[in-house]
Simulated assay, not measured.
Amino acid sequence: MTNATATKLHYDIVGSFLRPDNLKQARAAQKDGKISLADLHQVEDQAIRELVAKEKAHGLKIVTDGEFRRSWWHLDTFWGFDGVKRIKVQQGYEFHDEETRPESAQVSGKIAFNPTHPDLAAYKFLHSLTADDSEITDRQSIPAPAQLYAELTRGPENLKALAKYYSNEDDLITDIGQAYHDLLLALYDAGCRDVKFDDCTWGMIVDDTFWKNRISDGINRDELAGRYLKVNNAALADLPKDLRVSTHVCRGNYHSTWASSGGYAPIADYLFAKENVQAFYLEFDDDRSGDFAPLAKVAADKDVVLGLVTSKRPELEDPQVLIKRVKEASQYVPLEHLSLSTQCGFASTEEGNKLTEKQQWDKIELVVATAEKIWN
């Protein structure tokens, strides 16, 4: 198993896949008390076995479990830490034309890693399917530490709960960073050598509409970017040298809708220049992401995975347009440090995006075939 897989192949995935109907039905049945949690896990296990086989069949060398055990891309991870609880809220996350289910995470004590964390258990099963295949790298995706910080500080009720357990910002950042650091080490001990942080915080921070609503909070953009960078890097300190950690900057991916827009320039000096990851998975599938110029700030020898193929719509992109855009990006990042992928996963939540399973795999095939034309 090698962490150089992504950079050698120059094609990649973000990680989540459309849930099969039988898995959706089993999850609903378990929620209604019609089947046990153990029964649901058996359905999940089989669905993941079938997914990994399909990933391999479509030429992928980096595989995931599709996030099939999750309802959300982020909240399930948060709820797995000690000191964080699941709550219902009055309003869900606001996306363009849609609103999500009204759930969140709230601090309920000092935050710490729990050895029974569901992401660790999920990875161990995935690894059991891939450990004997030297050509395959299994990847675990988790929401970034900054995402947990953002969630716990979202809204007056969460801030009120925080005040009970954390009297200052530094202690909160330290505990979040340590909890994540311990999760990363536990994943490593279980065999994981490739972890990706999914992070919407940077996507929100560049959105001017978001900032119009935050001006009254007395926080400026640079100050918040510094906090996000600090908590992410706290988790990344002193990790094993052969653990590849990357990050995906997301602008919202719920039921084929989006949440934020804006180019990367306002965060380039923080994220691209200073976050201690080895690769950046960046959305560039439409005009909301801006141009490639901020990539000039990417630290030397780090990789950029260009999310040029949208996972939100079924229509296939023109390969020649993709090739042209990769060439444009190579003005700022050397071609050998670039790769191609979809802009996000296909189902960041269990609802999934508005395309069929076949259309999902057509997108993957387009990414693989186009990358082979560019780099071979």
Rank of each mutant, 00 (worst) to 15 (best):
K230F: 09
K230R: 15
K230M: 09
V231H: 07
V231Q: 04
V231K: 05
N233K: 11
N233G: 08
N233D: 10
A234S: 14
A234P: 01
A234T: 14
L236T: 13
L236I: 14
L236H: 13
A237G: 00
D238H: 14
D238G: 05
D238Q: 15
L239I: 06
L239D: 10
L239P: 12
P240W: 07
K241E: 13
K241T: 11
D242Y: 09
D242V: 06
L243E: 07
L243P: 11
R244T: 07
R244W: 03
R244M: 09
R244F: 12
V245Y: 09
V245P: 07
V245F: 10
S246Q: 12
T247I: 15
H248L: 07
H248W: 07
H248F: 08
H248Y: 08
H248P: 03
V249Y: 00
V249R: 00
C250R: 10
C250Q: 07
R251C: 02
G252H: 09
G252L: 12
G252P: 11
N253T: 01
Y254R: 09
H255Y: 13
S256F: 05
T257M: 04
T257Y: 03
W258D: 01
W258R: 08
W258V: 10
W258T: 12
W258H: 12
A259E: 13
S260H: 09
S260Q: 06
G263D: 15
G263R: 09
Y264R: 00
A265E: 15
P266E: 08
P266L: 02
P266K: 10
P266D: 04
P266S: 11
I267Y: 04
I267C: 04
A268E: 03
A268V: 05
A268R: 02
A268K: 03
D269K: 14
D269T: 11
Y270V: 01
Y270W: 14
Y270K: 06
Y270F: 15
L271R: 01
L271I: 01
L271A: 02
L271T: 03
F272R: 02
F272L: 04
A273S: 15
A273C: 06
A273Q: 13
A273E: 13
A273R: 13
K274D: 04
K274Y: 02
K274G: 00
E275S: 00
E275L: 15
E275V: 10
E275A: 06
N276D: 14
Q278W: 00
Q278V: 00
Q278E: 12
Q278Y: 00
A279N: 02
A279F: 03
A279S: 14
